[in-house]
Design a protein around this nucleic acid. Sequence first.
DNA 1: AACTGAACTTGACCTATGTCAATTTAGGGT
DNA 2: ACCCTAAATTGACATAGGTCAAGTTCAGTT
Lengths: 248, 248
Amino acid sequence: MQTLTKNLPKCQQCPVRASALFGHLNTEMLDVVRALRTHQLVLEVGEHLYHQGDSPSKAYTVYEGWVVLYKNTHDGERQIIRFALAGEFLGYKLGNNTVYDHSAQALSDVKLCSFPISEIINEAGKHTALLLAIQSMNDTTMERCHSSITSIANKTAEQKVAYLFLTLYAREQEVRATEDNCIPFYLTQEDIGDALGLTSIHVNRVVQGLRRKGLLSCKNRCLSLHKIEELIEVAKMDRFEAQQFNLI
Amino acid sequence: MQTLTKNLPKCQQCPVRASALFGHLNTEMLDVVRALRTHQLVLEVGEHLYHQGDSPSKAYTVYEGWVVLYKNTHDGERQIIRFALAGEFLGYKLGNNTVYDHSAQALSDVKLCSFPISEIINEAGKHTALLLAIQSMNDTTMERCHSSITSIANKTAEQKVAYLFLTLYAREQEVRATEDNCIPFYLTQEDIGDALGLTSIHVNRVVQGLRRKGLLSCKNRCLSLHKIEELIEVAKMDRFEAQQFNLI
DNA sequence: AACTGAACTTGACCTATGTCAATTTAGGGT
DNA sequence: ACCCTAAATTGACATAGGTCAAGTTCAGTT
């Protein structure tokens, strides 16, 4: 893990700002944020940002790349809790004697902005807007968590996979508009399985099925969704959710 | 839904305070809370507190009874997201143009304290401690959400059921210490299935198995866990989690 | 260009859980 | 005490997805 302290990019010009946590803060508040953000961190693929059991001291915004959050399970496997993409927030947790319930690991080379939690709390009194922005972000995360539960518990394997692809695709498009319906894709089929409660073997069967139907292709760490509407149907994603993700 | 505005119990004497959201706020802060809490609500079994799609305006602390939070699924069923027991917090969501992603319904007769969200936000600047207390509560809820995902995705039916029973039992014990290892239990086997992604028929088979092993009994809306240690083993609950729930 | 380990693919077979269709039990209301 | 409906139970059978055991492909390195 490498720490950068010099020549940090200005938050005002941050490429992920619009969609990021602090997207709707005004310029004045942005200066507060920037003052808190004293570092940028660089992680290589596979490096951990923190481990389950660590005490939280910083929160992070993903500047570039993908991070995976996962819990260790009783049987020595892992359950992926969520993926944090560019612009998204992670690691924020209150409480002095608390520890993380999950680990965070880089899925690609990753660049992060880091914020000391204690200072966020200190500043909070003066800058309530910041605290509320974080809460609002947490609301979104919580709702995604609810959707994960619903997906994992009620959908078939094909529905789950299609649903995951759609949501990752939509979130990535948000910060990085591409002409060719193609997003960088850092997951192995095993990752997908660990996120959805499936074996990688079954994920493979399902992905091939989707490919054969011409709904998507996935080559060279690059995912293309060819028929969004049909995928929404296959995934049994409801229209409201599809709208929230700007898919329709 | 009945609204009480007279003779509300004092927060200082609240039977669920110790374990509730505002448990660790000092007395002075409690007065702020109490000033916000202008109503108590009474719901009968089956009544809804709010519906998926409603705009949030109030947050609630459960004073008495059990509330179920669920999402409607694509196939016309429901996925239970979580159960809110006495002392627990629900319905808090920021954002003026946002709507609830789930519904909240009374599983028993329920009494709630309600707090206007807009005023919480207004007071927040003056009373940061309140906002932080809410965030801390959200952290807990989020971690329980993570545990649900892990449980639903990776455990066998028997493990899931044992796990759910243990957590509900521990949470209920927290506010209502009972001599006889017995807690009031408001779930049908179908509820359990809807929470865990199982059919009620399979839940039935599993519950009977646990009963035959002498691990628990469940009669007259009353759940007794006879062998906590063994249940923890059956549920594959890890020791850290068992400690957090005060089970060991 | 050959080498290597990780990721992906394929096929045969197995099992946990779902489905369907009755039947029994139990708690709340008259 | 009786009725009535929701809940729990039982058994036979079906299936989505898991397991095991080989391959095969592919990206990165020498």
